[in-house]
Structures are given as structure tokens and as C-alpha cells.
Amino acid sequence: MTRSTSGESTRTPPRGRVSPAPPPDLVAAPGYGARRLYQAYLAAWSRHVDAVLTGPQFAVLSAIRAYPDADQTALAGAVALDTSTMADVCRRMERRGLITRHAAPHDARAKVLELTEEGAAALAEVFRRARRLDEALLEGCPAELRPHLASLFNDLGAHWEGVAERDEL
């Protein structure tokens, strides 16, 4: 701290510490923007929606509600999770009592997922908070463009997943 000529204390930045802007080539890269969006979304989710139930867990609970007879592998595709991540997410939610897993009637190796009463209640509560977050995140966007923006994000996600699967660029 330093004192101004009027005797008031003022804060001075620490010597040698600079907060530079991101380089222009980084700002121009779509992946950088996507990562910033995702990091900001995770922080907002944790603070305003649920610090324990993650976005992927919420997505799985939503998919179980939407597709009650679907198996774990099919639901993994619906929520854009690879099967090993899906299995891990489901194990954690099963331990917490949010879902149950049982063998599918058509294939004993496949696991059908069901919401428990606790899982349905958690989903209902988190759903309300998640929709409030969605509104806050898009409040600067005109209401008539919001569905288009969500569609654009999903289309980009599908395209980028395809790019990731290519053998070469």
C-alpha cells in the first residue's frame, strides 16, 4: 500500500505481476472460446445449481427419466458420454441412491437404469435450478434466438465429435 498526496491509502499492483490479455491467435481459436464457455458454465453450475450433482450426472438422470427402459450403453450415447465414463457416473449415482441398475431382459450383460424416489426428487429440484441458470446464461440473447443458439451449440458439438473421430485432418 502507498499513500496518496492527500494521505489516503491506495492499492498498487504487485511488482512484476501482469495480467495480459489472451493473444489474438488464441482468441481466434474456436477451441479456446469453447473451453472458456465450459469453464464458466462449470463454475456457474457449481455455484448456482448443485455443487454435488454434476452436469453429466444431471444429464444421465434426465435421460433415464426420458427413456425409462433404455440400457446404460444406449443412454451413454444420448448424453454424449463414452461408455466407461457412463459406467463410472452410474456407479457413483447408484452408491448415492439416485438410481438402480439391473440386467436388461433382452441381454443380461446390459444394465437398465431406473430412477429411485430420491433420484427423481433430486432431478426435479436440480432441474428447476438448471433452468434458472440457463435463463441467466442467455439473458443477453434475444428470446427468439435462444433455441437457435442451443441448436447451434449442439450442431457444433456433433461436428467436433466427428472431427475428433477422423484419422487425419
Results as ranks from 00 to 15, higher is better:
Asp134Met: 08
Glu135Gly: 14
His148Ile: 13
Ser19Glu: 14
Ala136Val: 09
Arg15Met: 07
Arg47Cys: 11
Arg132Asn: 12
Asp25Tyr: 07
Thr83Cys: 02
Ala21Trp: 08
Ala150Ile: 13
Ala103Ile: 01
Arg129Met: 03
Ala44Glu: 07
Thr83Gly: 13
Arg15Ser: 15
Arg92Gly: 14
Arg109Ala: 13
Tyr41Ile: 03
Ala120Trp: 08
Cys90Asp: 07
Leu138Glu: 03
Asp107Ala: 15
Ala43Cys: 02
His106Pro: 01
Gly16Ile: 00
His159Phe: 15
Ala108Arg: 14
Glu135Phe: 09
Leu81Gln: 11
Glu139Met: 12
Thr85Arg: 13
Ala121His: 14
Ser6Val: 05
Gly77Ser: 05
Leu53Ala: 04
Val18Pro: 02
Gly33Tyr: 08
Gly119Phe: 04
Ala80Gly: 07
Gly97Pro: 03
Glu165Thr: 03
Gly119Pro: 03
Leu115Gly: 05
Ala44Gln: 06
Pro20Met: 04
Leu152Ile: 10
Asn154Glu: 15
Thr2Cys: 12
Leu26Ala: 10
Gly140Met: 03
Val79Met: 09
Asp155Arg: 11
Ser6Asn: 11
Ala21His: 07
Pro20Ile: 01
Val49Leu: 08
Gly55Pro: 00
Ala44Pro: 10
Arg91Cys: 08
Pro22Ser: 08
Arg35Glu: 04
Glu8Phe: 05
Arg11Gly: 01
Leu37Asn: 04
Lys111Asp: 04
Glu168Met: 10
Gly140Asn: 02
Ala108Leu: 14
Tyr38Glu: 13
Ala51Val: 03
Glu161Asn: 13
Glu125His: 11
Asp134Cys: 11
Leu42Tyr: 06
Arg109Ser: 13
Asp107Cys: 07
Ala29Lys: 07
Pro23Arg: 06
Arg131Lys: 12
His159Pro: 02
Glu161Ile: 02
Val27Ala: 10
His102Tyr: 12
Asp88Thr: 14
Glu117Ala: 10
Ala80Asp: 14
Leu149Tyr: 13
Thr100Cys: 05
Arg132Glu: 14
Leu26Asn: 05
Lys111Ser: 10
Gly162Tyr: 02
Glu8Asp: 11
Leu145Pro: 00
Arg11Glu: 12
Arg15Asp: 09
Ala40Asn: 07
Leu75Asp: 05
Pro105Trp: 08
Ser6Asp: 15
Pro147His: 04
Leu42Gly: 04
Ala121Glu: 15
Arg92Asn: 07
Gly162Trp: 04
Gln57Ile: 02
Gly140Trp: 00
Asp167His: 09
Tyr38Phe: 15
Asp50Tyr: 08
Lys111Arg: 15
Arg36Thr: 11
Leu156Thr: 05
